[in-house]
Write a protein that binds this DNA or RNA. Structure first.
Lengths: 340, 340
DNA sequence: GTTAGCACTCGCGCCATGTGAGTGCTAACT
DNA sequence: AGTTAGCACTCACATGGCGCGAGTGCTAAC
């Protein structure tokens, strides 16, 4: 792999990302000033194919970059596109005066991403199991149910309805809330089960309420592998010629609708700031010619959430990474404000 | 329009709904035992076309029902398909042991609908402006923000984060909550602004908190035109041959993604239990060959939400109406339990 | 009023053909 | 030895002709 081969490969990838048309030797020698004839390029391309960086849809077509090529491209060749200042501006704009509700933040983040990149985008909240609890509060809803609001140290809120057997008035619920909060503050969701058991033993009455809460927290914890995830712009995938086949589009879209697969894909996220999964690397056959690019944003307590983009392997990696980076920063700082 | 024409029209519609293939005279005379030759059917079909009930894609193809035909079909000919007892069972199953959070209920409802019908489905919550407040409660989140939980008489919850200038502890917030709740209980969201103004005048301090709340409630009220809406199974539309064109699919899907259009469509809902909008009747050009079937479910206080299905005009109206009916009942009773 | 018969239409699938982009190879040039 | 011009070759794709058959409308007879 001499220097020239790499320059040619880069040119091919750049061109293909732009046009989605298999690129031929003439195109390279003309559009990119290499000072080489098409014949020479042809020889080099032949070598590159042998090395596994290029594929040929059929004999008389141009070459198409392989997953291996994109991998090289992302790892080595990428001049991270400095994104336009307008974009940063626009990101900041979108998050101004915004509610601190996790759900909204996530939705909005995905939305903004999808607007900026015009790829299908996603965002998840941080894993809740790791977070420590700051406050528990019960709010009466009806005679037999109450809303349990869980506030964590990162200012993130989860709430769920629990059923209570007896009729409890507001003040009683508040008293219980205070008591529980005192016992539970500073513990992670993971530990809290244990604490509640102790409490349950101490307090003879109110068993039912505490049991309900305990069960709910268990749910939240276990289901927190399945963090909330928001998608935006799924239909964006249809803008790309590689998905002009309806059947392909359908499987892609229903894959998103089930959410499970994507979630488990995100589970394996490395501690690295950016993760790029190219086609087969996703391990999901339906995503064979998609790339999934994700970035993490983090909160002070070390937990982190994910934002990301799904598009054709022929993705504008430079631009996407730039945007994800800016977005991640913005989100981190936004959420840390909440923590104060 | 004699009786025989109607029978023929019905046969044509039934067949086309099933197959999506333009139906010819022979098909009718053979598959549906009319005891008439194809020639006779042909004459009748010619008449039906003149009357505007049938269209002909091209001369040598069969006939296709027009919007007018579907309208007649829905209004007059529909023997409401008694749905399988299994379906009712399955609906009931899905709503067992379920959280009373409006958001979840709506999502779930849409999901179930989409599973049962295999059409794209939607659900919205009731308009909040009409609901009366049962309880307001502030939960501390961080030094400068709190969660305002609004519980209405139908047990429906809205919550939002508000920012407070000063640092307020839990007890103070609770005291404020109690005070506000007392003043505000029984008023609708619409009226509550007025009440808060009075309160604000009486209480010299705490202005900021009350102002924040007031502003938030204004938001909730005005944005309650834009009720929460949940879609499920958007990609289902791709199962139908009429959407095998990618461009068409794309516009359809992005129409759903913006949500606005569909929401405003639902706004015009009649007080009737069911609404069927066929193709052009939707007034949305993108939905020209879709039908939107909606049903309302209602709460005791008279407010009602919507569930519905979007599919090709060639929709199984009977089945869909049956399912929507059952679902509506189920939802109504579920939510009334919450009210108690 | 119904139906058999028939000529006619026209979308669709099939095949044959031509075109052109792109290749690989060879031989000559630097 | 590397580069390049030249050329034969491949093959997807677009084009156009052709036949098939589903379906129609009309007419004449039942």
């Amino acid at each position: 792999m001499d220097e020239r081969k790499i320059r040619i490969l880069q040119a091919i990838i750049d061109d293909y990302i732009l046009t989605a048309i298999p690129v031929g030797s003439r195109t390279i020698s003309k559009r990119y000033d290499m000072n080489l004839s098409s014949a020479t390029i042809r020889n080099e391309m032949s070598d590159l194919e042998e090395l596994g960086y290029l594929d040929q849809p059929h004999v008389s077509a141009g070459r198409v970059p392989s997953a291996k090529a994109y991998r090289l491209y992302v790892d080595e060749l990428l001049r991270t596109g400095k994104l336009k200042t307008g974009d940063v501006q626009s990101i900041r704009e979108h998050f101004k005066n915004r509610s601190g509700k996790m759900e909204d933040v996530i939705n909005r983040a995905a939305q903004v991403l999808s607007n900026l990149t015009s790829y299908t985008s996603l965002a998840t909240g941080p894993k809740s199991a790791e977070m420590t609890i700051r406050n528990l509060q019960l709010v009466p809803i009806s005679h037999h149910s109450a809303l349990l609001v869980i506030v964590t140290d990162s200012g993130i809120i989860r709430d769920s309805v629990i059923h209570v057997d007896r009729d409890l008035d507001s003040d009683t619920l508040y008293a219980i809330s205070r008591m529980l909060t005192e016992r539970v503050t500073g513990h992670t969701l993971r530990e809290v089960q244990q604490v509640l058991k102790t409490v349950s033993r101490e307090v003879a009455q109110r068993h039912d309420v505490i049991d309900s809460i305990s069960q709910l927290l268990a749910d939240v914890e276990s289901s927190s592998g399945r963090t909330r995830i928001a998608f935006a712009g799924p239909s964006n995938i249809l803008n790309f010629p590689e998905y002009s086949d309806v059947e392909k589009a359908r499987t892609f879209l229903s894959l998103l609708e089930t959410k499970d697969v994507i979630l488990s894909l995100l589970e394996q996220r490395q501690s690295v700031a950016f993760t790029v999964r190219i086609g087969p690397e996703t391990g999901v056959p339906e995503l064979a010619d998609c790339s999934v690019v994700t970035a993490t944003y983090s909160l002070d307590n070390g937990t982190n959430g994910t934002i990301g983009v799904i598009g054709p392997t022929r993705m504008q990696y430079g631009r996407v990474l730039g945007i994800l980076g800016a977005m991640g920063k913005q989100l981190s700082s936004l959420l840390r404000e909440n923590e104060e």
